[in-house]
Design a binder for these strands. Structure first.
Lengths: 286, 286
DNA sequence: CGATCGTTTGACGGTGCTCAATCACCGTGG
DNA sequence: CCACGGTGATTGAGCACCGTCAAACGATCG
């Protein structure tokens, strides 16, 4: 059964709107709606072919689209809103894998095992299209535009998870945060929204899980970046003041293989960033 | 140094051993070979349909299949051998994203941008099948078996990168290593090889990059795991002595919610592991 | 207003990163 | 055969960064 059960992650839910049954195949959406969502370039002449009903579903903030371990009945495309995907450890710790937004795909990694390796929860009121796995190949064959869009969406998702590794690989916590902000900025730009000013809908704790640090460290990281005048932070609103500086700062890696490369000062305007803090990190080249 | 061997016969190969029938369309590989590689369940009756030539290529250890930033001409399937995929930072630091083995897909994350976001290098003498991106959709439509196998392979790759996040998310370095070993063991089992005894072909440094730690820490981590009698390590050969113990240990997330759980003799034989002393294996029973 | 959750800030202790030396292994060439 | 350099793996020492614990602060809601 695909009933949405609220996870008691240690907090008894105060959200009464949980058990409001959201029917799967509601509101008579059409396949053309999905194609329109996925392809920025409108493919004309297909209206007749693709004007068939399609599954869609609405979720409220906090609703679970699918649970970790659940059978993979369908894959989903985010129509509006946003989701977080995460794994839950035995002790209840949530490892956030990613944040999924409009026109992106959800649940594709379940196809290889027929079980979802992670859960997906709406971070705000959202809606999705669903494509049953058994219809997937047939649909792709019948509608090349869908097939192409699917490949693109999955490829993008794969790339996102590659980026995640790059984020979590950074040594310093502030660098992880900086990389995350740069990536988010890029995604916002790709979505046609402002890359300099945006709202991070996830909580500090979710962000921290995604970055692989403690949530207190995220707060401290924001403070460091703000003190360096790279960003301005007000609650969950973020404004990037110095994009180049932020990018330069986010390039800091582990001990460089080539020591000389570090010596060439190049553009190390972020040296001031470290020195500003109470403790000077690894005495900087004078 | 890293000589890139190009596919098409148009480019003069740098590698001398290339010109002998291992150019792009060399050695008369057939599409049926690729299908046989990808599908464990043999799909019969397609022989005639799929008996057409297909691109294939051989690489020696250290050869680059594609470079980060290169145009995405094709996606690849590993026929034999194994590869590492990695991003190179400006300072030369290599962030290893994953290790790709037989029947797995390479380069799919390049489709969304037409540029490879990472490089792929053979970790041993290897061979791959290649499918040009422009033929991808047509091939999938013509040969459903291929389409299905592609979906499966990509889904698996996506799941692998999800696992990567779980590995890198672990706080303790030894736990990351343990998780990595468990995952590798699972992959070896899926490949039909021994899940208890295998050879890790990557260097300590590559492993460290993949885990997000310093390479010295990997050495120390192996030592800890060996002292706990969970594994036996000889250079790059690994033997898992206590699979259950290793899995239990790899479940440790960031600071267990309750310290008491560690004290409770229940399922925490690894409590002794932290103590540092060469612990007697199943010490705690009473 | 009280309650609850999210966020911030402080203090402390531990872990892993850095630096560095040593050993093991390998192919080369004397 | 051993000397030689080169690479990779291991081990040690020091200390700074971050995770943990704790408390104060702010926001939202009923």
């Amino acid at each position: 059964m695909d009933k949405v059960i609220h996870f008691s992650g240690g907090s008894p839910s105060i959200n009464g709107s949980q058990h409001r049954a959201s029917a799967f195949a509601g509101e008579g959406s059409r396949l053309s709606d999905l194609l329109h969502l996925l392809s920025s370039t409108e493919a004309p002449g297909l209206a007749a072919l693709v004007d068939e009903p399609i599954l869609s579903r609405r979720l409220h903030e906090g609703d679970t689209l699918f649970h970790e371990g659940a059978r993979a009945d369908a894959i989903y495309f985010v129509r509006s809103g946003s989701f977080k995907t995460f794994c839950t450890a035995e002790d209840g710790y949530e490892q956030v894998l990613g944040f999924v937004g409009r026109a992106e795909v959800l649940g594709f990694d379940a196809l290889c095992t027929n079980r979802h390796p992670n859960s997906a929860v709406a971070m705000e009121d959202s809606s999705v299209f669903g494509v049953p796995v058994r219809d997937l190949s047939a649909l792709g064959r019948r509608v090349p535009a869908f097939d192409h869009a699917l490949v693109l969406a999955v490829s993008r998702e794969l790339a996102h998870r590659g980026d995640l590794a790059n984020v979590m690989a950074a040594v310093a916590a502030e660098v992880r945060l900086a990389r995350f902000l740069v990536q988010w900025s890029t995604r916002m730009a790709a979505r046609g929204q402002s890359p300099r000013r945006f709202v991070l809908r996830m909580s500090r704790r979710e962000m921290a899980s995604h970055l692989g640090v403690a949530h207190e460290t995220v707060s401290r990281g924001f403070r460091v970046l703000a003190n360096a005048a790279l960003v301005k932070v007000c609650n969950r609103e973020v404004e990037i003041l110095d994009m180049d500086g932020l990018k330069a700062f986010s390039c800091s890696t582990r001990r460089p293989i080539d020591e000389d490369a570090a010596a060439s000062a190049g553009h190390s305007q972020h040296a001031a960033l470290w020195s500003g803090a109470p403790a000077t990190r690894h005495a900087e080249a004078a």
